[in-house]
Design a protein around this nucleic acid. Structure first.
Length: 265
DNA sequence: ATGGTGGGTACCCCA
């Protein structure tokens, strides 16, 4: 049985519900994980997703910023949010899919502009969040079971995850300290990078292009900030993927594009 | 080296 999971930093789900519908019609994922929904739960467009065939919903929003959600054709069980770094930020939602597959949807702090935790508390928060994810991954590895992590992790870990490794060494998202922090998560052995399973280096792979570039497609100064990881026991089930680059060119786009992974279970 | 764009909200935060 195929299972397709999508992840997309939507940068306001209310503003972009139209292109979300466009994406769902085209890609037909079973589950869509959103980040940066930017709405409290009361004004999340529940009915629109129901009408599109996604009645099962696990939502964690807050005013102004952040916000994550999982909407699904399939029933969701034991959905819960959890605080990270001792904060109540809406950056994580967990649920269990049919077949006992645990799904975690993350929105890792972007980290501000200055890549120095001593002077920039946002960058310190990002590093602390990634460190907590590493501890959590070690626990997950010990527990075992079928698991999927998706989200905007705001780190482009590989040299080929950015348009210019050299020019981004001091740019938040690709600094050595962040890459090492993500390396410690992966060193726990809990995760297989599903996108790089399908698209190994040295191919360049991007999921985000800045709004500030006048011609994003021509300049193509992208970064791979959005990720899908699966537990090692799901690696044999990895059946396909897509990076929906065309969505960056849609009307009023998000700066991130949807990423889908299909498992054959 | 700098500033470029976009979203939410309420005149400034965050990405």
């Amino acid at each position: 049985m195929p299972l397709t999971i999508a992840t997309w930093n939507i940068n306001s789900v209310r503003l972009r519900i139209g292109i979300v519908e466009q994406f769902l019609k085209a890609a037909q994922p079973d589950v869509l994980c959103l980040q940066e929904t930017k709405t409290v739960d009361e004004t999340f467009p529940r009915a629109a997703f129901e009408a599109m065939g996604y009645p099962h919903q696990a939502i964690s929003g807050q005013k102004n910023h952040h916000g994550v959600a999982i909407v699904s054709r399939l029933p969701l069980d034991r959905s819960e949010k959890r605080g990270w770094c001792g904060k109540t930020d809406a950056r994580h939602m967990c649920t269990v899919l049919p077949g006992d597959i645990m799904l975690d949807n993350f929105y890792v702090p972007a980290g501000g502009d200055e890549p120095d935790p001593e002077v920039n508390p946002k960058f310190a928060h990002k590093l602390a969040f990634l460190a907590e994810m590493a501890d959590w991954s070690a626990e997950v590895r010990a527990l075992g079971g079928r698991r999927i992590v998706v989200g905007d992790l705001n780190v482009a870990p590989l040299e080929t995850d950015v348009w210019s490794h050299k020019q981004l060494l001091k740019v938040v998202s690709h600094t050595p300290v962040e890459v090492e922090a993500m390396g410690r998560i992966m060193a726990a052995g809990a995760w297989v990078d599903a996108i790089r399973h399908f698209r190994p280096e040295p191919e360049k792979v991007y999921t985000w292009w800045s709004y500030r570039a006048p011609d994003w497609a021509k300049a193509d100064k992208g970064r791979r900030l959005d990720h899908v990881w699966v537990s090692p026991d799901l690696k044999p089930a990895l059946a396909g993927h897509a990076i929906h680059r065309d969505a960056r060119g849609w009307l009023q786009p998000s700066d991130h594009v949807p990423v889908t992974v299909t498992l054959d279970l």
